[in-house]
Design a protein around this nucleic acid. Structure first.
Lengths: 225, 225
DNA sequence: GTTTGAATCAAACGAACGTTTGAAACCGAG
DNA sequence: CTCGGTTTCAAACGTTCGTTTGATTCAAAC
């Protein structure tokens, strides 16, 4: 058959194809709304392959997340380390801290430039779906990063109480998660004003907004005035 | 039987009990993860009652949302009208615009003070679950409110482009949605720093953050400097 | 008392789900 | 070729899902 696609060119492992397909479908439809039959069909694999390679649907999700989150969090901490090393005793710049937190994740959008971002939407879904079993997964993957960035932000904004740092960090993550999940719908909901295909464009809008939010006066200061 | 609970005291309609139970369970576990059997059991109603009163699970969800969203959006617009009427020709105050947008929804938390907020979490879920059929539902219920508030914000912050207004309004909604969904988990994730049981406390942290974010300089200004 | 329409009920429907099984297919090592 | 372990496969498991059905209950209208 002449149209057989390059028999010498190897296609990825079944395991890898399952991760790719699951990532795509979980992101598009949500985790619970995606059946393993849909995943294995998209991966051109047998239904039982999921349980052979991963053990269960939940462990498949965990593997999908871990595959992408690990390098992202490593880069986050690497960027933060570089910031703190470069700034000596001075606290690192707020914009750069936020950029170190947000950019490594949003940049995933640009990996497959031609198609709508998949993993970023999945992360947004995981960040908002939690409550079932995903909650523990997220805590496990992000606890260290959150702690490091909370400390860095606390040094950069010493007038804020730890409670305020925690609140604003969560607001920050919420903004990112919501934006990631709805990037395909943002254009429609804003009547074409928000074009979220470009990661740099999103960052351009998001960083100043969040940085200004972080720099808002502490509620303690306001009460004292 | 002496323990028969007050036979003269009428309990709500089956229809109402279904709405209550669905609201609670949808909020706790998510929509797709909640079965109609669980809803009807919690409502002490027959399984077929859902289809008799609403027609389908999706229409039940729509009814649950509509029951709460209608008065909330009415109050939002009422507060906005009052702001714009009181400020005459001057643009309304930013903090008050944001408060008019956020407070009516977050206040729902306080309706049943003793129990964890239910509807607010459901709204957060609907705002993040969309992609299936919920998307159209949300657009239908919120299009007018979003448009009105975008116009008000544009008047209060005339230096921002319509695109920037749209982006920041979405960031604002994302912050609210994420906070609402995770209010039960926020305390744990922040190691006890965020106590989100009190709506006023949440607003106290959220309004300054978002107001400062909205007041961030336009990217146009920054490029010009 | 009879009728009528709304409301509730137990029971079942077919479909889809996550998971398990046991046998076939594959493939490098002996 | 034969063997042993890994991987794939078709088929079925038991469960749960949203939905439907047809009989039954009930309260007001006649």
């Amino acid at each position: 058959m002449p149209d057989t696609p390059l028999p010498t060119e190897e296609r990825p492992d079944t395991r890898e194809r399952l991760l790719d397909a699951a990532e795509q479908l979980f992101a598009e439809r949500g985790v619970t709304a995606t059946s393993l039959r849909a995943v294995t069909k998209a991966a051109d694999a047998n239904l039982a392959a999921v349980h052979y390679h991963f053990g269960s649907k939940e462990e498949l999700l965990s593997a999908v997340v871990a595959r992408r989150v690990r390098p992202i969090n490593e880069e986050r901490l690497r960027l933060l380390d570089r910031l703190q090393a470069g700034s000596g005793d001075r606290a690192a710049d707020l914009d750069e801290i936020l950029s170190a937190l947000l950019l490594p994740m949003i940049r995933e959008t640009g990996r497959n430039p031609e198609r709508v971002p998949t993993f970023t939407r999945l992360m947004g879904r995981v960040l908002t779906d939690m409550g079932t079993g995903t909650h523990a997964l997220v805590v496990h993957h992000f606890a260290e990063v959150l702690q490091r960035f909370a400390a860095a932000l606390s040094r950069a904004l010493p007038h804020l109480t730890p409670e305020e740092i925690a609140w604003r960090l969560h607001f920050c993550i919420g903004t990112m998660a919501f934006t990631l999940v709805h990037s395909p719908h943002l254009a429609e909901m804003s009547r074409g004003l928000c074009r979220s295909h470009d990661a740099d464009r999103v960052m351009e809008q998001m960083i100043p907004f969040l940085a200004a939010g972080f720099q808002a006066p502490s509620s303690i200061d306001e009460e004292a005035s």
